[in-house]
Design a protein around this nucleic acid. Structure first.
Length: 90
DNA sequence: GCGCTGACTGTCA
DNA sequence: ATGACAGCCAGCG
């Protein structure tokens, strides 16, 4: 019983493309991604794409909230975020 | 077609 | 600074 995930639509791939473009060590907020995805108000939809349709090709951990929080990938704290970033930076 | 939900965001109290 | 409310987009029942 696979987890419920969204289908791959243009929006999903678009969002994934945006996140994929994020340089390692850098982080982008859902809002920024949504804006680049031509949907400046679709921060939630972006989050959904990651949540239900996250790909290994998409470093969701580089996508954070506007508050500076991680969001839902690790849900631990900025420390975890730094750990991941540092890990890929290695 | 309607309503709910979600890894969200911004504003008001 | 914290809590609550409303708004937005997309998918699913």
């Amino acid at each position: 019983m696979p987890v419920k995930k969204k289908q791959n639509n243009d929006f999903s791939e678009l969002v994934k493309s945006i996140v994929r473009k994020i340089p390692r060590g850098e982080t982008m907020t859902y809002k920024e991604v949504a804006i680049k995805a031509k949907r400046p108000l679709a921060a939630r939809a972006v989050a959904n794409v990651m949540a239900k349709n996250y790909d290994e090709t998409v470093p969701c951990h580089r996508v954070i909230r506007s508050d500076g929080g991680l969001g839902g990938y690790n849900r631990g704290g900025e420390e975890v975020k730094r750990a991941i970033l540092a890990s890929e930076l290695t």
